[in-house]
Write a protein that binds this DNA or RNA. Structure first.
Lengths: 185, 185
DNA sequence: TAGATTGTCTAGCAGTGCTAGAGTTGGAGC
DNA sequence: GCTCCAACTCTAGCACTGCTAGACAATCTA
């Protein structure tokens, strides 16, 4: 049934257009300004079309977050492989700084995604595993250390992105965090 | 002019009623459900009365955050004095867990407050100074270590509050964070 | 007591997420 | 080619949001 599959393809493309546009709007104006009307206008369809692809606005933000998990996992794996723990830490913070709205959808906005369970998004588990690999040499309890190290990175990222930390001390903070973690090991 | 001061007192009391009610609503139903209509109804005045005390809804959340800064500073100072670094860390996380909506207003929701400048709220500086005192023994650069330690605590608090960390490993995480920080010092 | 000030409310605006129901389009079967 | 049906898309509207103008009432001043 070639007709059906062509339709499916068209639907899939439009779905991606919606997600891409929502992400772009969020990065340029903030999630507050991503409204059904603005989004619909940008993709040149009426609002109900959004709801034929997504249950609600929250689901659109979730789709953006899922993209982010995949990108972050990829970035962390690469950085870990080439530059070790330090590379991973810097890559994490760089991702959060370069894609603040995506980062917000992933780790700050309330979400219906499950974290750390069997039904978590695979890309999220990949990212988590990259962090775990990076800290395993320094841990007895690698699961807990992963959570602690991730929390530290998340704290630096989120407080930094919301102008709650000195902007000129970014590098000093990462270096100090790494020194603290690796000290005596 | 006793009449004027009585009026001022009445106004001040009503202002406090508004802040108290907003805080209560936020803690019980979340900030999303703190709307001008619900809040006005709860304090038994019409919506415009809210705007005679506050510029907008954001300013009401800011007032709640300021209360939080004072409470947190107090809690951290006390804990630091009686139980040292470990006490401070636990007090921080306990405050975030027991008052998630206030914590959100303080450190997660976007705000117009200035962090770390001369015109920061004094209570916020007090809290920051308590953290600085707690880590000074372990630091060359105490300003940076304060930011890093605070970030770690904030990461644990915010990810924990949004169900992104294992609930049963709370204590293990604090202990591991403290062990890491104090190791070799 | 008359006038001015302060306080409070009703009613309304423009915007939000979301949906029911009408109308159009285009492929399937004859 | 024509009819029918299903898939699709839109207009219009609901109940809600933050916020405000302008009318009315209460209270203090002189």
């Amino acid at each position: 049934m070639p007709t059906q599959s062509r339709r499916d393809r068209a639907r899939e493309e439009r779905r991606e257009l919606i997600v891409r546009t929502a992400r772009m709007l969020a990065e340029s104006d903030g999630w507050d300004h991503v409204t059904t009307r603005r989004l619909a206008e940008q993709v040149d369809y009426s609002q109900p079309v959004l709801y034929s692809h997504f249950k609600n606005m929250q689901a659109i933000a979730t789709a953006v977050a899922l993209e982010g998990f995949a990108e972050l996992a990829e970035a962390l794996s690469n950085a870990l492989e080439s530059d070790g723990l330090r590379g991973l830490a810097r890559a994490y913070l760089a991702y959060a700084e370069e894609h603040p709205a995506v980062y917000e959808a992933m780790f700050i906005r309330s979400t219906d995604l499950v974290f750390g369970g069997a039904d978590s998004p695979p890309a999220l588990l990949d990212a988590f595993n990259a962090i775990r690999s990076s800290v395993t040499p320094y841990a007895d309890d690698s699961e807990t250390l992963t959570e602690v190290f991730w929390s530290a990175l998340h704290g630096l990222a989120s407080l930094g992105n919301s102008a709650r930390l000195r902007p000129d001390a970014k590098l000093a903070r990462v270096d100090l965090l790494l020194a603290t973690l690796t000290k005596g090991a």
